[in-house]
Simulated assay, not measured.
Amino acid sequence: MSELFKYTASEWSAIQLSLYVALICAVITLPLAIAVGWFLARKRFFGKSVVEGILHLPLVLPPITTGYLLLLVFGNRGVIGKFFYETFGIQIAFSFYAAVIAAIFVSFPLVTRSIRLSIELVDQKLEEAARTLGASNLRVFFTITLPLALPGVISGFILSFARSLGEFGATISFAGNIEGKTQTLPLAIFSEMQVPGQEASTMRLVVVSVILSLLAMIAAEFLNRRVIKSKTA
């Protein structure tokens, strides 16, 4: 039983790296998802269904496929990866950057969907009333739309964080499984499972994974209730 609390340096490294990647992913994804979510909720244009389908592809594609496509684009021979490698000497694939990018691409559709649905529930008559009183579109968004859609925004942020913690397929194919560099918590669990006699280490990492995911979900529910209560008070 005591072995469940004896974490090695490599295990702590995987845990810390996962938290770091998940936090960066959530911070980067949120403003992008808010912008795209608002655009999809409020705009009508030709080909909207196609755009939505493309944005939601990572939800239905096998994660390993998403990782391979990212490798084609951001690898040293890819369109974007080649530019960064030849111009700045930065290798994106099989690096920490790759782990973050993989997490962003996989979690982005979930966050966008959550925020879009919340914005769609905001009464547009309130926005129109503010405009008739002279408020600019930007002011309407920040003073009416965004505050009323806040529960969905909070859920999206937590969802992005939690989804990033559990990302495996795209990460292992695009970022690799390099200890101390790209080996996140799911990859560490996978690695330990392949080694005979590492049941205790695997269980330690699994316990941490469950606890972190559960805490993220509890935090999302708590914050949503606080926001809803403040609006009805």
Rank of each mutant, 00 (worst) to 15 (best):
I178Y: 10
V153Y: 07
K231L: 13
R225W: 05
P196H: 03
P147E: 06
T202N: 00
G75A: 08
Q183I: 11
E3S: 15
P62Y: 04
I119R: 00
V36D: 07
I15T: 05
E52S: 15
L159T: 13
A135C: 14
T132A: 15
I189N: 01
K48F: 14
P62H: 06
S18P: 00
P186H: 11
F96S: 04
K181M: 11
I158K: 00
S230G: 07
A9C: 11
Q198H: 13
V100M: 07
L187Q: 05
L150C: 06
A216M: 02
F157D: 05
V73H: 09
A102I: 13
F39R: 14
F46M: 14
K82E: 13
V227N: 01
V106A: 13
V227Y: 03
A170Q: 13
L214A: 09
S18R: 00
K125N: 13
T87Y: 08
T143M: 12
F88R: 03
T232W: 13
L138Y: 15
P151Q: 05
V207C: 06
L72V: 08
K231T: 09
F88D: 01
V208K: 00
T66S: 07
D123G: 03
A162H: 04
L30C: 08
T132N: 15
K229G: 01
S160W: 04
R113K: 12
V210P: 02
V207D: 01
L138G: 14
T143K: 14
